[in-house]
Design a protein around this nucleic acid. Structure first.
Length: 140
DNA sequence: ACTGAGCGG
C-alpha cells in the first residue's frame, strides 16, 4: 500500500487573489465567469454612492473626501465610526471601522474616482473602492 | 487595548 494520496495539500503561494469577500484587489478576474447563460452582466449598479474599504483606522471622513475630491466633486464623504470604543477621558474615543462611503455628484465622477482611488494608498493602507449598495431610506 | 472582515443613520 504505497500509495501516495494527496501529494501536496496546499502548496500555493496564496499571494494572488484572496477573493473572500469584497475589497478585492482589482476587478480584473483572470477567470471567466460562467455568466454567459443570460446576457445581463451587472458588475455593480452604477451609483453615486461609493463604498471605500481598507481605510486606516485613523483615516477620517475629511481624508476620504480630500482623497476622492481629486477625481470629482464629492457631495458627501462619510467614514463609519465604531461606537464601541470608549476611553475614559481624552479624545480619540471614536475610531473608524476601516471603511466609509463617498457620494459623488455624478456617475462619471464616481466611476472616475473609483477607478482612480481603487488600489491606491491612503494613510499607508491600500484602499478599495466599490459601488455601495442601494441602502437608501428613501427609495429614490 | 486590539486584532483588518466588511456596507452607514
Amino acid at each position: 500500500m504505497a500509495l501516495r494520496a494527496a501529494v501536496s495539500a496546499n502548496h500555493q503561494v496564496g499571494m494572488g487573489l484572496a477573493v473572500k469577500a469584497f475589497c478585492s484587489s482589482f476587478s480584473s478576474l483572470p477567470f471567466s465567469l460562467p455568466q454567459s447563460t443570460t446576457e445581463n452582466p451587472p458588475p455593480a449598479e452604477s451609483s453615486t454612492n461609493l463604498f471605500v474599504c481598507g481605510l486606516n483606522k485613523r483615516t477620517t471622513s475629511e481624508g476620504l473626501r480630500n482623497a476622492f475630491a481629486k477625481y470629482g466633486e464629492v457631495v458627501h464623504a462619510k467614514v463609519v465610526i465604531d461606537h464601541a470604543s470608549k476611553v475614559d477621558s481624552d479624545h480619540a474615543s471614536k475610531i473608524s471601522k476601516g471603511f466609509g462611503f463617498v457620494k459623488y455628484a455624478t456617475i462619471q465622477d464616481a466611476e472616475s474616482g473609483m477607478k482612480g482611488m481603487d488600489g491606491q494608498y491612503l494613510d499607508g493602507w491600500v484602499i478599495f473602492v466599490e459601488y455601495a449598495r442601494p441602502r437608501a431610506p428613501f427609495p429614490q
